[in-house]
């Protein structure tokens, strides 16, 4: 690892100011992705700004919803009583990701900022437009079994690996951000980007390969909801501690046998958490039957396109959406 300068900050203001002074600096919270990328030589910031002392760990609820501090640990969120009772889909998704050790290190903000990536991104001897714009994409005609089937471009077909983010996309969360120009909020579903011609930009805080704007995520707000039926289905190569091949987050309200409200998002299929808005509209007002779920699953995968090794994700995605809807609908 190339050595770097390291400072600790204790307020968001100080962190943002420190970031403004050094273009090649990066914030570090849990470091579970960043330290790994630095070891591999994928990214080499000249300065790390440790933000772990910032007072952004609280989880507070009111009638409008819950605000989760950006520095709340993934494990703390998954074990939090408010989250477990009111937003269990989020707790289930978080526990489906990484390992107990990593969830004790990784923060909510850091989980969002982890790189959208694939093995070509991680291997600095290989071409990768995300790591080195213009160098090409090794995955397009290479090993692409784990890759995206939605929203791809000829520049990049990597997927965002987070499970937590899939649940947050489904639950209409909002990202709270602070910076030199003040605070702003953006919809969670607008936070991450599709690759287009600039795959080096993972999200709306990215400025280039490994670079970030001088802004800091301070928290995530999830609006209150009355979903009683939910499920996070994750399909992977081993039964725990592996990235999703395909995952589906579902939250439903069912009255009698009629679906009155639905939220769905998928993971493992795109450069960002993939919200299924059309499917939500389609199932709302329909009866919760296997026929409805099968039709919803077909609709969910319309327009999906594989790259060879990952073609299986289209069939698997259909089965996963139908199964996740069924599991959610049967939740007591």
């Amino acid at each position: 690892m190339i050595n770097f300068d390291y400072i600790r900050t204790s307020t968001a203001k100080a962190a943002v100011e420190a970031k403004a002074k050094s273009a090649s600096s990066q914030f570090i919270a849990g470091g579970t992705n960043l330290v790994d990328l630095m070891k591999k030589g994928v990214t080499s910031p000249e300065k790390l700004i440790d933000i772990n002392s910032l007072p952004l760990k609280q989880i507070t609820a009111d009638a409008k919803g819950v605000l989760i501090g950006a520095l709340a640990l993934n494990s703390e969120v998954a074990e939090n009583a408010i989250i477990k009772t009111k937003y269990p889909l989020l707790a289930q998704a978080i526990n489906a990701g990484a390992s107990a050790q990593l969830r004790n290190m990784a923060t909510v903000g850091g989980n969002m900022m982890q790189r959208t990536r694939c093995s070509y991104f991680y291997d600095i001897t290989m071409p990768c437009n995300k790591r080195e714009p213009g160098s090409g994409c090794g995955a397009l005609q290479g090993q692409n079994r784990m890759h995206a089937v939605f929203g791809t471009s000829e520049k990049c077909i990597a997927v965002h690996p987070s499970d937590m983010c899939v649940a947050l996309a489904a639950l209409d969360a909002t990202v709270h951000i602070t910076g030199a120009k003040g605070d702003r909020k953006i919809l969670f579903t607008d936070f991450h980007r599709l690759p287009g011609d600039t795959p080096e930009l993972d999200n709306n805080l990215s400025t280039g390969p490994g670079g970030q704007k001088g802004e800091l995520i301070t928290g995530i707000h999830i609006p209150a909801n009355s979903f009683t039926k939910f499920h996070y289905l994750k399909i992977r190569d081993r039964s725990s501690y592996a990235f999703a091949l395909v995952s589906v987050a579902v939250a439903l309200e069912i009255s009698g046998n009629t679906i009155t409200n639905a939220k769905l998002a998928m993971g493992g299929v795109a450069h960002k958490p993939w919200r299924l808005s059309a499917v939500e509209k389609f199932v709302t007002g329909k009866t919760a039957t296997k026929e409805t779920f099968a039709a919803a699953a077909n609709m969910a995968m319309e327009g999906a396109a594989g790259f060879g090794q990952n073609n299986f994700k289209i069939k698997m995605g259909k089965a996963a959406v139908a199964e996740a809807l069924l599991q959610a609908s049967q939740k007591i």
């Binding site: 390291y6 579970t32 790994d36 390992s99 990593l102 290190m105």
Partner: peptide, 29 residues
């Protein structure tokens, strides 16, 4: 593995288990 994938480096920091290979020493002040 030195990349947080195997758990051989697990230690407790303030009572919580973590992968010590992915934690910079200076972050443990």
């Amino acid at each position: 593995c030195d990349h947080g994938q195997c758990g051989a480096c697990t230690v407790h920091v303030d009572g919580k288990r973590i992968n010590s290979c992915l934690s910079l020493a200076v972050m443990n002040e």
